[in-house]
Structure formats: structure tokens, C-alpha cells
Amino acid sequence: MADGEEQLDLTGAVEAVERFLLQEEPRFTRDEVLARSGVDEAVAEELWRWLGFPQADHDAVAFTTLDVESLRQAVELVELGVLTEDRQAALVRTWGRSFARLAEWQTTLLADVALEEGVGDPVARVAELAEEVLPRVEALQSYVWRRHLVSAAGRLLAVESPGSPAAPLAVVFVDIVGYTSRSKSLDEAGLVAWLEGFEAVCTDIAVEHGGRVIKNIGDEVLVVADDPAAAAEIALTMVESGADEDDPFPQVRAGLAHGAVVSRLGDVFGPTVNIAARLTSLARPSTVLVDRGAYEVLSGRVQDDAEEPAEDRSSEDARDEPAEGDDTPYRFRRLRRASVKGYSRLQPWVLRRR
């Protein structure tokens, strides 16, 4: 803030937004919420803590009818067997983290719009935007949630054993090459814009080829796909875009693994995920490395260690070209086994288009 510039008092706007979102003025203390909901204090405090809500003093009037109803609904889910003791903490924590991040981004967006020069009183503008924008945001969020439920249900029912904790998936890690040096040359706004652009393109490529982004981890993105060929196209498209000097997409490297993956609360776990990450760390710039599982599915060949060529153990230039008449769109170059964290003899292949 510049010297002499007065700081805006947005207290009135915050109170107006709070009234709109909570549908009424805060009217209950914590003890009154517990009494009205019939929920044990220890249970309520645990739920609020998992959700990341700030703790209110016993005599603070900070709650509304929505808080009472929400506690009742949580108890009903427990009684229905949906929120069992072993699922409750993880599920509620995921809700809390996800919605906290989403709410922070949305309020920042509203504030930026409201504080733009030339739009009148910013305090009134915040309250006005809340009434005009937030109902539409809420409806859109509900729609997106429902569409993702449909997709998730379809994937669950498509596997051979829907109750199994693991299912075959192709996992792709994509990592920006030279991220540290590039990030040092950008200011905060520039770095955010650069990473958001990277994430947006990654999402577009993943969705276009039938994959889905699990998460972005700074300069890295984790993508999964049910079809290994789709995962291969995602990885190759990203490294090709990064290798194009006329494309603003940054240079990247990728690791692709295929095998059993545990999906839980929107994230993925297991050795296949770990191997994909390790392959990424081994890959050279603008290169895709694949593991044995992905190689066998994509090439149509089962690799037998007993038939491993002697030259392959001593040279990274040993090639495994598609056999004559093979209709696979890919070619592979077998590299020497590598020792990485957790895997002493990880076998990678370079994946290229045929």
C-alpha cells in the first residue's frame, strides 16, 4: 500500500456477505448449537476441527441455524453407516481442505473485481457481487460435483471388482525442466500466472485424451487414465509441446507407469504411482520414460528378463523397435536398469512415436 493511502474498511461488506451466505445473522453460541442439534460436544468439536473451522468461545454468538442443521445431518450420516469411524476423519478433513482452498480463491477473485478502480463504492460492490455471483457459483459447483459423481460411478462399476481397494490405472507424472531457475526470474504475479498457465494446458491435454488430473504439486502434475494408450498420448503431447520453441508451454519430462493403483478421496497411492514419480526423476528433458507394465501393454510384448540382451545391460543405445508388421504407434528404447529410492533395479524404456 502506498504511503498516505487510506486502508479501506470492509467490515460492512464482510458482515453483508456473512449474512447472505449464512442466511441470517449469527444468533447462537456454541453451547446453544449443541443443545439444539443434540450432538455431543466432543463429536461436534472434532468435526469442526477436521473441517478447519476456527474455534469459537463458549459465549461467542457466532453460529446460525445452518450450523445446527449441519451437525444433525452429520450425525444422520453416521447413523446411516456412511460416515463410519474409520472414514469420518479422512472424509471430513478432505472436505475442509478442498472447500477452504476453493473459498479462498473465490473470495480473492470477488475482492479483486470489487476493488477495481472506477466501479464505485467497493464496500457496496462486495455485497452486491456476493448476491449476484455466489448463487450462480453455488449452482455451478453443485452441477460440477454431480457430473464428477456420474464419472466416478461409471469408473467404479467398470472395474472387475468394484469393492477392491485397487484397480489398474496408467499414472503419468509431468515435471517442468529448469523450474527453479525460471521461477527466480519471475515476480510473484508472474510466477502465479506461469504456473496457472501450465496447469490449464495440462488439464486441457489430459481431458482431451480421456485422462484426469489428480493434483498439481508446484512444478509437477499428476494425471491418471484408465487406458494406457491415452496416458501415453497425454505424456507425449506434453513433452512435444514443451519441445516446440514456438509454444509457450514449458519444457517438461514425464514418467508413465501402469498397474494396480489405490484411489482414495480424490488421490491415488501405491507402487505404480511411486514408480511413475521415480521415472520422471530419471527422464531427460522432453523425454517420456515408461515402466515394464506400460511397456508390455503399449508394445503388446511380455518382457522376459531371461531374454535380456547383453548389450542392453551395458549401453543406453540398445533399441527395441516395433516388429515388422506391428501396428503399435510407438517405438521403445530400453535403458539400463536404474537404482532409485525404493527400487534397486527399476527397468525404464524411452517412449517415442513410431
Rank of each mutant, 00 (worst) to 15 (best):
I205V: 15
E311I: 06
D9Y: 04
W194S: 07
Y330K: 11
A277D: 03
T328S: 13
L191H: 04
Q55I: 10
L149H: 13
A56E: 04
S315E: 13
G38D: 01
R146G: 10
R331D: 01
E245R: 12
R93A: 11
F173M: 09
P250K: 01
I275T: 15
V350H: 01
L91C: 14
P309C: 11
L195R: 00
E160F: 06
T272E: 04
H58V: 13
E24H: 05
T203G: 13
C202F: 12
L34M: 01
L47Y: 00
A200M: 12
L256V: 10
R36G: 03
I275Y: 07
W50I: 05
E46V: 00
D244W: 01
I275S: 08
L34C: 06
A16Q: 02
L191I: 08
T11C: 06
L149V: 07
R27W: 01
D86V: 12
D227M: 07
G197Q: 06
V82C: 07
E208W: 00
F198P: 03
L222Q: 15
G242C: 05
A42C: 03
L10R: 05
D3R: 08
E132C: 14
P285A: 14
V43E: 09
D204S: 15
G218L: 10
L298F: 03
Y179G: 05
K341L: 03
M238W: 04
A254Q: 07
A243Q: 12
R331L: 05
W95S: 11
S263G: 02
P271A: 14
R19W: 02
R87V: 08
A318C: 10
D31Q: 10
A152L: 11
D86P: 10
G270P: 13
D244E: 13
A130W: 04
W95A: 01
